[in-house]
Amino acid sequence: MIRVENLVTSYNGRRILNNVNLEVQAGETMVILGGSGTGKSTLLRHIIRLELPTSGHVYIKNQDICHMPEDRFNLLRAKIGMLFQSAALFNSMTVEENVALPLRELTRLEDSTIRIMTRIKLDLVGLGGFENYMPSELSGGMKKRAGLARALAMDPEILLFDEPSAGLDPITAAGIDNLILKLHKAFHMTIVVVTHEMASAFTIADRITVMDQGEVIATGTPEEIRASKHPKVQQFLNRTPVDETLDAQAYLRSLTQS
């Protein structure tokens, strides 16, 4: 369903993604795991084509989206839903208006039908009754659920999550994990989740890809990842901090040079 081939991206001369290869099968839940700054969110942004790579390809349903005209890709985008880290709800609209937006703009459905579909999506994520709330009146967990309802509005085949548990307490985060599992079981969507929360990753994943410094260092089932002999994978799984060996001369140079 999704295939990333030799993806390379740089910002201001700094390489963020370095020859990333990834394959996500239809109907599976792939978790991209890694520490902060390893390029996970950047990879996700390339999959939805919010950014274009320096080189490499991203294929969705065997179509190379990197070189596709914008109009054609927007037809594909209608089948992809994304939940952003901050939920990215439109603050000037109510929850119902947020969820209804893609339906109003991308379909010719009647208003009454859109209203019903919106309420179904909100009920699905446990936000029934909150249609007229503004995003500023919602808690963090509720915002994520509203963002997820909006991502589900067009009945997508692919769902992307960028750090769904970020900023949430463990109980609320577990609620989001259960929701992801429920959606996967009910709709058999292809789901890609970017996270650094191990508990979430091992709960929801069919397969896990571990990234470090812009590279994929391991891919496999949760059991395979647990059993991986790669030192950085084990360091991440065991929450072992990086052993920083101080080079005294280099440190002095960095302090004194202008």
Partner: peptide, 16 residues
């Protein structure tokens, strides 16, 4: 403000 809160990204991600 929409840019920093990813609302513009959300619009683009929806194909709008």
């Amino acid at each position: 403000t929409m840019k920093v809160s990813e609302e513009i990204d959300a619009l683009e991600a929806m194909g709008l």
